[in-house]
């Protein structure tokens, strides 16, 4: 087994506190290993972004982390819980250990500062001893890494196209050689060709630089191509987790199967594109039993009464579904 770098344990994230709050992430366990690309997939509104920002404590109000642990294993062997460390400590770990490319990277850049300033200030904040010259050189190098000409360094965000801004954000994420990069739909504003081109670059970089990636998208076919492992989310819960090849070959959860039938795969066997009928549940009034049962084509009687728990099924894979009862023990 590979070395673990980030472990999410029993994470619950709410919008709002007290009465009237909704739980958007429910009891999530997730492990990220060193050097791996972990894909996170699910329909729009399934809680992918909430999970990513909740575990890094970047969720804007009214988001609240209700409970859970986010354990981060530092290089020196010590482990910290990101949810419990002091602000200063968290600030120090941010970006130097865990960098994030936000969904909608279009608005992620400060409109009144040059790209160079925004690339350089993060380097300066974390390694104040570097010379201004070295920081500039690094900024130039980063832009070239993502395929942007270095003379764009002194542009303002509004002078760049949407795709360029997303690349700048990816470049920025790599500025401090982080060990974990979280990417929330980093390529949605781009056309398919550019999307794949950027992802290729990313995977190459990962091989060279050795960071781990949490890659979020609702496009499962993209994940199948680029990630090592995939976790599927539905209504705030992880319902299946598997190596991407296994998941692609034989999805166990009916929801995963539905997702795979929602996007045309670029290679491999062609599935019938049926999609998933119905729409996700309202988080305020979740159905009893399996949250997916009102939409599930294979629902059993038990599904409407009892919640299936995520666990190792008999064939050794993680899934929360009564079709694949959890191995006892």
């Amino acid at each position: 087994m590979k070395e673990r770098i980030l472990e999410v344990r029993g994470l619950n994230v709410d919008y709002g506190a007290g009465p009237g709050s909704v739980r958007a992430v429910r009891d999530v366990d997730l492990t990220l290993h060193r050097g791996e690309v972990l894909g996170l997939a699910g329909e729009s509104g399934s809680g992918k972004s909430t999970l990513a920002y909740g575990m890094t404590r970047l969720l804007p109000p009214p988001g609240v982390v209700a409970s859970g642990e986010v354990l981060y294993h530092l290089q020196d062997g010590t482990t910290v819980d990101l949810l419990r460390i002091r602000d200063a400590e968290l600030r120090r770990l941010r970006w130097s250990e865990i960098a994030i490319v936000f969904q909608g990277a279009i608005n992620s850049l400060n409109p009144v500062q040059r790209i160079s300033t925004q690339l350089v200030d993060v380097i300066k904040a974390h390694s104040p001893k570097t010379s201004p010259r070295a920081r500039q050189d690094r900024a130039r190098e980063l832009l070239e890494l993502v395929g942007i000409a270095a003379d764009r360094l002194h542009s303002y965000p509004h002078q760049l196209s949407g795709g360029m801004r997303q690349r700048v954000m990816i470049a920025m994420a790599l500025a401090l050689d982080p060990r974990v990069v979280v990417m929330d739909e980093p390529t949605t504003a781009l056309d398919v060709v550019v999307q794949r081109q950027i992802l290729r670059t990313l995977v190459d970089l990962r091989e060279r630089l050795g960071f781990s990636v949490v890659f979020i998208t609702h496009d499962l076919s993209l994940l199948v191509e680029f990630s090592d492992r995939i976790a599927i989310m539905y209504a705030g819960q992880v319902v299946e987790e598997a190596a991407s090849a296994d998941l692609y070959r034989s999805p166990l959860h009916p929801y995963s199967d539905g997702l795979l039938r929602s996007f045309p795969a670029l290679k491999g066997e062609k599935r019938e594109l049926t999609g998933i009928p119905g729409s996700p549940p309202d988080l305020r009034s979740m159905p009893a039993g399996c949250a997916f049962h009102p939409r599930c084509p294979r629902a059993l009687d038990v599904c409407g009464d009892r919640v299936p728990l995520l666990g190792q099924s008999r064939d050794g894979r993680s899934v929360a579904c009564w079709l694949h009862p959890v191995a006892v023990g």
Partner: peptide, 29 residues
């Protein structure tokens, strides 16, 4: 609550810098 302020926090910048160079600088306009 604009994205770039959250990004500035995510970058681990000192609070003063997030407040002045990101939030206040834009709120000033």
């Amino acid at each position: 609550s604009d994205d770039y302020v959250t990004v500035a926090h995510a970058k681990g910048l000192p609070e003063r810098r997030v407040m002045l160079a990101y939030a206040a600088r834009n709120a000033l306009l």
